[in-house]
């Protein structure tokens, strides 16, 4: 019979918690977030169509996570609430990834030191800028540390190995097709040195923050469009500028035709657009 020790050093306590969180995160499949010429791409190995690892937070901000679903889903909902409340009480342009990353960092840090168990999650908050130089990618870990990443991030079980691969092969200005190809190839590598797997579109959850779209930049990619982007002999290298014409949610692009959608159809921006139209040529 062993009894509980009366004193555990803070170093040991924190180390135990970190090991616990790291183990939980390492069990899951990985997620890659990487910049391409027209935005930021998110690629997750995730066979589920309903339980997302990647989501929209706000107009130009998206969220990706690995680890325990209920914990990162909780953080995602908190992020949407944070962003929507901030945008409602100030202005849509006042919602930034930096502010959200700070709030997440404080939350994760508090849970890590004060709760009985740390969150077993790692998350990325990314904001697409007007140019690639203005893109922001923040990576947050279970203990509340924040890292401001440039270009690419990998999270999950095989993160270190994927990051090594991305360091060699990622460069600024990749087309979306090339960026996705790179991410999928790295995700398919076996960390224990076995043969590479070829991931099919059905095993992937893919989304982009497309800097050229008005207002809501987040789009999921699926169907024929994703297949075409991932196939090396197909010439498709980028997402279409228009959304799918099929009635329903317009946040998923499947490449089944395209329809011209007016910028003024965006709620909350129509007034500004109308003002621009009102300027009469001299």
């Amino acid at each position: 019979m062993s009894s509980m020790p009366f004193y555990v050093s803070p170093e040991q306590l924190m180390k135990d918690r970190a090991d616990y969180a790291r183990k939980g995160i390492a069990r899951g499949r990985s997620v890659v977030v990487l910049g391409y010429d027209k935005g930021i791409a998110f690629v997750a190995e995730n066979p589920s169509r309903a339980l997302h690892k990647i989501s929209e937070i706000y107009d130009r901000i998206a969220f990706a996570a690995v680890g325990k679903y209920n914990e990162f889903e909780n953080l995602r909902v908190a992020g949407v609430r944070y962003a929507d409340l901030r945008g409602y009480s100030y202005d849509r342009t006042d919602v930034t990834a930096r502010g959200l990353a700070n709030a997440y960092a404080q939350t994760l840090g508090t849970v890590f030191t004060q709760e009985s168990k740390p969150y077993e999650v790692e998350i990325v908050v990314a904001e697409v800028g007007a140019t690639a130089e203005e893109d922001q990618i923040y990576r947050l870990t279970y203990d509340g540390s924040v890292a401001d990443e440039y270009g690419f991030v990998a999270m999950g079980g095989a993160a270190d190995q994927i990051e090594t691969g991305l360091k060699d092969r990622w460069r600024p200005g990749l087309s979306l097709g090339d960026a996705l190809g790179l991410a999928v190839a790295e995700l398919g590598k076996d960390p224990s040195g076995g043969p590479d797997r070829t991931l099919t579109p059905a095993q992937l959850e893919v989304a982009v923050l497309d800097r050229e779209r008005p207002r809501r930049c987040f789009r999921r990619l699926g169907g024929g469009l994703l297949e075409a982007l991932l196939s090396s002999d197909d010439p498709t290298r980028d997402v279409p500028t228009e959304d799918d014409p099929t009635p329903g949610r317009h946040d998923t692009l499947t490449g089944d035709g395209a329809v011209v959608r007016d910028m003024s159809s965006n709620p909350q921006t129509q007034l500004d657009d109308a003002r621009e139209d009102d300027v009469q040529p001299e």
């Binding site: 944070y82 709030a103 960092a105 404080q106 939350t107 508090t110």
Partner: peptide
Amino acid sequence: PHAGKLPAAYLSP
């Protein structure tokens, strides 16, 4: 010490 963290209401289901 944790001024900037998300209020509990944000994290409540």
